[in-house]
């Protein structure tokens, strides 16, 4: 399943690179790291259009969980602003 390997390598490389870059620029908020991770994972998943239907369904579920985490961050930030 070469397409699976390519996808996993692409996501893993991006996440690692993001961590290195954010550490280098001195990002000190976990929210920033997580937001970058989620956006990158969602974009790469969308770019792999040739996945079979089962893989796409499973990855959609993972994307939904990651997006839910992102929404928690957004909501907590909004509550901080309102408070």
């Amino acid at each position: 399943m070469k397409i699976y390997n390519n996808y996993v390598i692409a996501v893993a490389s991006l996440l690692l690179l993001t961590t290195v870059v954010l550490v280098a620029i001195g990002a000190n908020s976990l929210d920033v790291y997580y937001t970058f991770y989620v956006v990158e994972a969602l974009v790469v998943t969308e770019l792999y259009v040739y996945f079979n239907a089962r893989a796409r369904r499973s990855l959609t579920l993972v994307s939904a969980v990651l997006f839910a985490g992102f929404m928690v961050i957004v909501l907590s930030a909004a509550l901080k602003v309102l408070a």
């Binding site: 893993a12 996440l15 991770y37 499973s58 990855l59 990651l66």
Partner: peptide, 15 residues
């Protein structure tokens, strides 16, 4: 967290 994200993706693909 990045490792956990990769773990979820791999477990989803494994199925």
């Amino acid at each position: 967290i990045a490792m956990l994200i990769m773990a979820f993706i791999l477990l989803a693909l494994a199925r």
